[in-house]
């Protein structure tokens, strides 16, 4: 089996090891939820053993006591500086789900370069507006706010938490309404696009991917192109499903470190390493 798929399977199971939660229609309540997981994985998923960093960030910012989270920003920065978007490509459960959907043998769409160049900035807007600014400023009378990204945008919560809980828990089933219909619609749109386009959520929507992307050029984990070996044959760029010109910018903010470029390179000019030697 492909090393990356195997890692994704192990990471997804490790983050969602509370199997009995799926059968009981309840969530895990243990102390391990003090810790965040590195990928986008809803803490209201019945299997979740840790917390989602994006949900937690909104929870702390939107609490009465604080309007900034040192703990979560510190955790996300630590993951970012160590691994960059390697987490998106190898660890994130929702990224893995998108990878699986893209394997469905239907015609694929390659987003044109111009559209891609504009759309890629959308995730930064979502990070800033829905994850940070709205929870910070759009508060109720007692100073608390909703997790706006989770509530109105995130399809991961619907898929990993909403659907299994509503299926297994009758009392929850009785309370679903417009919001659930809205989130199911977004989930269906995400699924359709994920079948046709490679990782649309990661590329254009995910605030966690947006945050990690800021660290790609400076993280310990780096890609390097040996200019002496590179023949500029463009094989890496053609292979890259994220539309990156790898030989020009191996540490692009959009790169999820899948490593397909290094595998396809005929002269093995692309190397991956975990050091600061190339910085």
């Amino acid at each position: 089996m492909d090393k990356r798929i195997l890692t994704q399977i192990i990471a997804t199971i490790a983050m969602n090891g509370n199997i009995k939660g799926f059968f009981e229609g309840s969530i895990f309540k243990g102390n391990s939820k003090k810790l965040c997981v590195p990928g986008l994985n809803c803490y209201s998923c019945p299997g979740a053993l840790g917390s989602c960093p994006i949900g937690s960030l909104q929870a702390v910012i939107g609490s009465i006591k604080y309007n900034f989270s040192f703990y979560i920003i510190g955790f996300m920065s630590l993951m970012g500086i160590l691994f960059g978007r390697l987490i998106c490509g190898w660890i994130c459960p929702f990224g893995f789900i998108q990878d699986l959907l893209y394997k469905i043998p239907l015609p694929k769409i390659k987003v044109n370069k111009k559209a891609n160049n504009y759309l890629k900035y959308l995730k930064y807007v979502i990070l800033l507006v829905f994850v940070i600014l709205l929870p910070m400023f759009l508060v109720n009378d007692v100073g608390m706010s909703d997790p706006y990204f989770c509530k109105y945008i995130c399809p991961a919560g619907t898929l990993e938490g909403g659907i299994p809980l509503v299926l297994m828990n009758e009392s929850l089933r009785d309370t679903i309404g417009f919001l659930f219909a809205w989130k199911i619609t977004l989930l269906i749109i995400t699924i359709i696009f994920s079948i046709l386009i490679y990782r649309p959520f990661c590329r254009y929507i995910c605030p966690l991917g947006a945050f990690y992307s800021l660290f790609n050029p400076i993280s310990f984990y780096q890609f390097k192109v040996d200019k002496n070996q590179c023949t500029m044959c463009n094989s890496c760029s053609k292979k890259c499903k994220m539309n990156i010109e790898v030989y020009k910018n191996p540490n692009s903010m959009e790169c999820i470190r899948c490593g397909d470029c290094a595998q396809i390179c005929p002269t093995k000019a692309i190397t991956k390493n975990f050091s600061t030697k190339n910085l």
Binding site: F28, Y66, L179
Partner: peptide, 29 residues
């Protein structure tokens, strides 16, 4: 930053949110 967050007890807010069903996250609240 992580140390400062732990010192400020942010961890408890994370835990409290995560062990209670987040109705907004799953599309109910």
């Amino acid at each position: 930053l992580i140390g400062a967050g732990i010192y400020r007890n942010e961890v408890n807010i994370v835990l409290k949110k995560a062990v209670n069903l987040c109705l907004e996250c799953i599309g109910i609240g």
